[in-house]
Amino acid sequence: MLYEIQVVNHGIPIEVIRNMIDVSARFFNLPYGERSKYMSSDMAAPVRYGTSLNQNKDAVFCWKDFLKLVCHPLSDVVSHWPSSPVDFRESVATYAKETKYLFLRIMEAILESLGLWGATKDDRTPENDEILKQLDGGSQLMVVNCFPPCPEPDLTLGMPPHSDYGFLTLLLQDDVEGLQIQYKGEWITVEPMQNSFVVNIGDHLEIFSNGRYKSVLHRVIVNPAKLRLSVALLHSLPFDYMVRPSPKLIDDANPRRYKDTDFATFLHYISTCEPKKKNFLESRKFT
């Protein structure tokens, strides 16, 4: 199955995309004292500012700052988000709503490709619709990344090789190169396309599809002269739901390949281990 695609003609207004990049840049331009108010060691906090991936466990820090925002349900979390810049909450909430709709449309196509959802209403059953209902009410985690210029880019990375935990990640990039995916053992740079979204398959979709779809191993390199911004939205089932292979994708020829997992299991794993490549997903495989 395809690992990574870029989506254009997605219907999300250009001004929504531009506002998201603009307000992100203005947040990272705030004085450090303003940004640091949102620093937290609680990896489940609704808002968390920091650097690297896991400051407690990373052997080598990443060359980046980040802001993580829980985006669902919006009515419960928006008040926790930064209030500066003054239009931050409104811009981010609008962006989160628009991208959630896009995520669900892409998931419809993926479920259809797996034979789990009909292309027409006559082909659909309440059972087939259930996974989409769960995803519609599921988790949505935003990670806004700022990769400053690095004087020695060959000595570090913006993010080390890793896969994402959810079903799909919708990634918005600015016009500065940095994202790379691994394909057949080689690192391929994903060229930024204006107003497009990179769609990365996450570990949860690999588990749910019983290995039919594979999560993508990716990393971020840094630039010696230019700052780079990206906005990643990780979508999955609700945080308290178990993710498991669909029973309809398991048979004698395709035995179950993955254990059940949930967000709490993921958080415990990355809070005790240094994130490396696809090691969490490997821990969920039956040997």
Rank of each mutant, 00 (worst) to 15 (best):
120 T>K: 15
104 L>F: 06
205 L>Q: 02
238 P>T: 04
97 K>G: 09
144 V>S: 15
21 I>F: 08
23 V>R: 03
216 V>E: 02
74 L>D: 02
61 F>V: 15
180 Q>P: 13
267 L>T: 05
34 E>N: 01
243 V>W: 02
125 T>V: 12
278 K>I: 06
158 G>V: 02
286 F>E: 00
139 S>K: 06
107 M>I: 06
282 E>T: 10
52 S>T: 14
237 L>G: 08
7 V>D: 05
54 N>M: 13
115 G>Y: 01
209 S>V: 09
136 D>C: 04
285 K>H: 00
80 H>W: 01
223 N>W: 02
43 M>L: 14
129 D>F: 03
239 F>S: 14
255 P>H: 04
50 G>S: 11
180 Q>Y: 01
216 V>K: 02
244 R>H: 08
14 I>T: 10
64 K>P: 04
232 A>S: 15
52 S>G: 03
1 M>A: 12
182 Q>A: 07
62 C>W: 01
145 N>M: 04
284 R>H: 00
254 N>E: 01
138 G>R: 03
59 A>P: 07
50 G>K: 05
281 L>F: 01
228 R>S: 13
153 P>G: 05
85 P>T: 10
261 T>S: 15
96 A>C: 12
233 L>N: 15
112 E>Y: 11
80 H>P: 03
1 M>K: 04
260 D>M: 12
112 E>T: 14
277 K>P: 05
41 S>Q: 13
159 M>R: 00
159 M>C: 09
57 K>S: 08
229 L>N: 07
63 W>L: 09
152 E>L: 08
49 Y>W: 01
264 A>F: 12
79 S>R: 05
28 F>T: 06
234 L>Y: 03
273 C>K: 13
3 Y>N: 13
44 A>N: 11
19 N>A: 12
236 S>E: 06
64 K>S: 11
100 K>E: 08
139 S>V: 04
1 M>R: 05
199 V>T: 04
15 E>A: 11
211 G>A: 14
119 A>K: 12
86 V>Q: 11
153 P>F: 03
19 N>K: 11
242 M>L: 14
121 K>S: 12
166 G>R: 00
6 Q>I: 08
85 P>L: 07
20 M>G: 05
61 F>H: 12
125 T>H: 08
172 L>M: 13
71 C>T: 09
69 L>V: 11
151 P>A: 06
255 P>C: 10
286 F>M: 07
108 E>Q: 15
94 T>G: 12
140 Q>K: 11
168 L>Q: 08
178 G>Y: 00
261 T>N: 13
233 L>T: 09
99 T>Q: 03
90 E>S: 10
224 P>E: 09
282 E>L: 14
148 P>F: 05
157 L>K: 02
51 T>P: 00
125 T>R: 06
268 H>Q: 14
22 D>A: 09
52 S>A: 03
98 E>R: 07
145 N>T: 00
183 Y>L: 07
152 E>R: 13
121 K>D: 13
134 Q>C: 10
88 F>D: 03
74 L>V: 11
202 G>Q: 00
81 W>C: 10
49 Y>C: 00
181 I>H: 00
158 G>K: 02
116 L>M: 13
112 E>A: 15
55 Q>Y: 01
241 Y>D: 15
131 I>H: 10
249 L>N: 04
256 R>D: 08
8 V>S: 09
27 F>K: 02
7 V>C: 09
248 K>G: 09
143 V>W: 01
229 L>Y: 06
156 T>P: 07
185 G>Q: 04
51 T>S: 12
13 P>Y: 00
51 T>H: 08
231 V>G: 10
123 D>M: 11
